[in-house]
Design a protein around this nucleic acid. Structure first.
Lengths: 178, 178
DNA sequence: CAGACTTGGTCTGGTGAACAGACCGGATCG
DNA sequence: CGATCCGGTCTGTTCACCAGACCAAGTCTG
């Protein structure tokens, strides 16, 4: 619980939202889910997060209907629900803010509208189609700021190539090291 | 620091953003700043937050260029910078998400475009003007979900009436109690 | 000027969360 | 049958948050 019992007094939807997704690591976990990461070990390796905390966050997200936990091939897979997918504007805008205002000027990731191959702008708008595509219609690829990332885990390696959001990350293409 | 030193390995703008605004209370403080709250005591009363934590969060936000600390009439005032104002889409979308997906169906606050008096939609769009107004062009007023709030502090009372965002909250209109 | 009050903090002791890392049970591989 | 992978749980330490006491500067009252 990010705010203890405070949200009751707040009576505010923002406080309630922060109860669910405002804890440490949670938005980073969800960002990875949008990228297509679905498995415990992939999340753990990519985020370098403690197992206990990852377990707790996933449990919280499942309990709040943001993720589902499904068995696939004997392994659990964590998938975004519709509620979870609705967080994309928040994650996108916060990431853009970080890019603009706290980091270097170069985006680490670029997002393009899969239907027309146009890069979306800072508010997620596709100028070719005149719409704001949902995350399922976006392709993520490395941007000029990517050199800031020196991670060699399987997720980071898979994201070195363009990848359709929400489709599974291919983590079977080789060992973690490299 | 919300993520310790983790953001270095992440090389990700979202992680860097969360370093700045991802700590407990921070987004609620900033929401209040958008509403026009500027003073330490008003923030403390409205959020019911410990003095030490509020001090720490304000210092962090000032140090990261999200707020400025200025003296007005002998008292410090905390004001959003341009960088801070750029967080509005994030706060708005997360609040909308909380409204839709974690709380009741009724918005606690409604936002209208001051120029044309039209309520903005869930993505912040004004259908009359065909644009997405910035926070300085919005008026906030209580919505049908407001009854969930039973706070009687001065900020809550001031927000019982429509209020132009980013203009100072009038907290001198009476004592805190009611 | 004394004394009370407001404002904007700092300091302290207790509690809960996050961390690194050990351990573990089931499945799969060789 | 042992080794490895996967998805966790458990443990001891560190760290952040909390309530609440304390404090200094200003300021209102007389």
């Amino acid at each position: 619980m990010a705010l203890g019992t405070g949200y009751e007094q707040q009576g505010c939807h923002l406080a309630r939202a922060l109860e669910v997704v405002g804890e440490r690591w949670t938005l980073l976990i969800l960002r990875d889910c949008f990228y297509g990461v679905r498995r415990f070990t992939d999340l753990r390796e990519h985020l370098d997060i403690s197992r206990a905390v990852l377990t707790d966050r996933l449990d919280t997200l499942v309990a709040n209907g943001v993720l589902t936990r499904e068995d696939s091939d004997g392994h659990p897979e964590y998938l975004l629900t519709e509620t979870g997918r609705a967080l994309w504007p928040t994650i996108f805008s916060l990431s853009k803010w970080g890019e603009r205002h706290t980091s270097g000027p170069h985006p680490a990731r670029l997002f393009s509208h899969a239907a027309c191959d146009t890069d979306i702008d800072d508010v997620g708008h596709c100028h070719t189609c005149g719409e704001v595509p949902g995350p399922e219609d976006l392709v993520v690829r490395p941007g000029p700021g990517t050199n800031a990332m020196r991670r060699s885990d399987r997720v980071a390696r898979a994201l070195e190539r363009p990848h359709r959001m929400l489709t599974p990350i291919d983590t079977a293409s080789g060992p973690a090291g490299g």
